[in-house]
Write a protein that binds this DNA or RNA. Sequence first.
RNA 1: GGCGGAGUAGCUCAGUCGGUUAGAGCAGUGGAAUCAUAAUCCAUGUGUCGGGGGUUCGAAUCCCUCCUCCGCUACCA
Length: 512
Amino acid sequence: MTERYYLTTAISYPNGRPHMGHAYEAIATDALARFHRLDGKQVFFLTGTDEHGLKISQAARDAGQEPRDYVEGMAAHFQDMAARLDISHDRFVRTTEPGHYACAQDLWRRMEARGDIYLDKYEGWYSVRDEAYYDEKELVTGEDGEKLSPEGTPVVWTVEESYFFRLSAYQDRLIELFETNPDFVQPASRRNEMMSFVKGGLRDLSISRTSFDWGVPVPDAPKHVMYVWLDALSNYLSGIGYPDASYEDWWPCDVHVIGKDVVRFHAVYWPAFLLSAGVELPKAVFGHGFVLWDGKKMSKSAGNVVDPLGLADKYGVDQLRYFLLREVPFGGDGSYSEAAIVTRANADLANDLGNLAQRCLSMIAKNCGGVVPEPAAPTNADKALDMEMSGLLSTVQKHMAAFQIHSALEAVWRMVGETNAYFAAREPWALKTSDPEQMGSVLYRTADTVRQLAILAQPAIPNGAAKLLDLLAVDETDRDFAALGKKMQPGTELPAPAGVFPRLEMPEEVTA
RNA sequence: GGCGGAGUAGCUCAGUCGGUUAGAGCAGUGGAAUCAUAAUCCAUGUGUCGGGGGUUCGAAUCCCUCCUCCGCUACCA
């Protein structure tokens, strides 16, 4: 049976348009999903939107809409983003789906049956105007010494009935989880943080609200809606059919790819919920970093909010994807700018890979009648090229298994460089007159190496890689990793060569 | 405050269970080549490896200390 691989992004909170953070997470997870498909696994890639909660109902109210109508429009923006960035998800789950309600409520009942849910009082500083609780240390003092919310609105000490989850009972099991399965939370720095957080002691968690009603109703307690995280996290199960037993086709999840800001919810609360509900735990949680615009956080006030789709339109989807995946070490923070995207895309895509394909293919077109030439007996240089190329897959697999997407791409592009060096050293343009047979052989070997490089580059640059494979007349069914060793057939007719990665213009210097 | 991480070439970073002349990419400089998207190839770095002290035959790599930056420190997602 084919090995299965289930991976997810976090679901997006659609109280605004998609931003670069959403795009980055989707692209990175997509690269992983595509990699595993090409590597022969059956993959299920889930993404979606988290459509409940106070902020959504507020945003809807501001927009003069009902929450349900509001999220309808907002979810469409996220689906559109996924489509335009070539995200290959298998399903887009929305927490407002009836099936999701059934899932979250089933989990709740199981946790309740375990004896982990009890009714108590939630106390805190509540702002009626904001419809939100604030922590003591978040409060500011007004002119008359009264306590105010960070928004400057009055707060009152409020006691609200709430259901609680016995998170405290799971402290030991979580520590054991982190110890016996050190890869559960990645990167390691995040695991250490979670370990120290859990070791610091866990308090029970309030998991229902009565202060707003835009959420999943608590079973048999109509005044209560579920705490947003219990609702949101259960998408990973509802997205694959839970509570229907078919969910076991994919569960347990291989990895939840998430932002570093939500690691705690995924690495502590989620496993605790699942342990309580008696559902298997996911295998890993990976917290990626943030991408910063020119090293700064984006904010509307600073006027530096960048629309990822605008960048994709301007520079190309592959270019944007490649830049983010190659330039940002996965798991760490990174920064981006238009100049950096252009520099990276030109150097690696246009100059190195694109031009390599072009110089080789145009020689074949002009000197070999547009037909794949015949390889001669390998020279030492040919053998060296083959040797390096044949070792590349395992290097890429090793990096991808460790979520080192940037390292995998670095390795592929090192080979692109080797191939350019090979081409230059063998000088097929000189062989044209001195030894036409050898010229054909060099062109054949270069073309076949480009074929393999394009196959390996597909997770990052699906469009450009596909175009390269088209130019090499590679059959649609011969584009996965299993086909890497399937050499090109001499005599195959090739289409007319065409540039795949255009050279990008450096943007005009904009003085801020 | 507590715990943890980081500070290496102009830029982005790799490298530390101590050991030959500290590396890569980009940028710069020189050369070659001219098949190709003015792309490619080759050569080229007098870097206080954050400051100071210590251990050692020997430290970017270990210990102490100081400076700077960052992350986590629970119920907004």
